Simulated assay, not measured.
Amino acid sequence: MEFVDTYNLTGLIIGICTFLIIGIFHPVVVKAEYYWGTGCWWIFLVLGIAGTVAALWVTDVLWSSLLGVFAFSSFWTIKEIFEQEERVRKGWFPANPKKKKQLKVEN
């Protein structure tokens, strides 16, 4: 961490990691909706609450910021899971044929 502080890299590291966290959550949304549907939204709620508590508990600015980004990306994923269901219904993404509740595809 001394190197990061010496060269004022904290902001760049937060920016890069934010980009990566958000980028990782996109395929997570797609896969979660494909395999579990919207019923898994509560997992992201728990992750968001845990990330928020951890961000408040950690004193280091870098780690606290990254935990905050993770927490609010988790909260945002709840919204995206439901929007992903709509995208699947429209046929923009494939529906899982093994899921119990099949969605009708509109053209």
Rank of each mutant, 00 (worst) to 15 (best):
W36A: 03
W36R: 03
W36L: 09
W36I: 01
W36Y: 15
G37V: 07
G37D: 09
G37K: 13
G37Q: 08
T38L: 02
G39E: 13
G39N: 15
G39W: 15
C40A: 09
C40R: 05
W41Y: 15
W41Q: 09
W41R: 07
W42L: 10
W42K: 12
W42D: 02
I43T: 03
I43S: 02
I43A: 11
I43K: 08
I43D: 02
F44L: 11
F44C: 07
L45F: 15
L45Q: 00
L45S: 03
L45V: 05
L45W: 03
V46F: 15
V46D: 06
V46W: 10
V46N: 04
V46T: 06
V46E: 01
V46P: 06
L47I: 02
L47V: 04
L47C: 12
G48A: 10
G48S: 13
G48Y: 15
G48C: 13
G48D: 05
G48L: 15
G48P: 12
I49R: 10
A50Y: 11
A50V: 08
A50Q: 06
A50E: 12
G51D: 04
G51V: 06
G51Y: 07
G51E: 03
G51P: 04
G51A: 06
T52K: 00
T52F: 08
T52S: 12
T52D: 02
T52V: 02
V53N: 00
V53K: 02
V53S: 09
A54E: 09
A54K: 01
A54C: 10
A54P: 07
A54H: 06
A54M: 13
A55V: 08
A55I: 03
A55R: 00
A55G: 14
L56I: 04
L56M: 11
L56Q: 07
L56V: 03
L56H: 09
L56R: 03
W57D: 04
W57F: 14
W57S: 06
W57H: 11
W57P: 01
W57N: 09
V58W: 14
V58E: 15
V58R: 04
V58A: 03
T59L: 07
T59M: 09
T59F: 13
D60S: 10
D60E: 09
D60P: 00
D60G: 11
V61C: 00
V61S: 06
V61Y: 14
L62A: 02
L62E: 03
L62C: 01
L62Y: 05
W63R: 00
W63T: 06
W63H: 12
W63I: 02
W63G: 00
S64H: 13
S64A: 14
S64W: 12
S64R: 06
S65L: 07
S65R: 05
S65H: 08
L66E: 10
L66I: 14
L66A: 10
L67Y: 13
L67F: 15
L67P: 10
G68Q: 08
G68Y: 15
V69L: 08
V69E: 03
V69G: 02
V69T: 08
V69I: 15
F70K: 00
F70W: 12
A71P: 04
A71V: 03
A71E: 03
A71K: 01
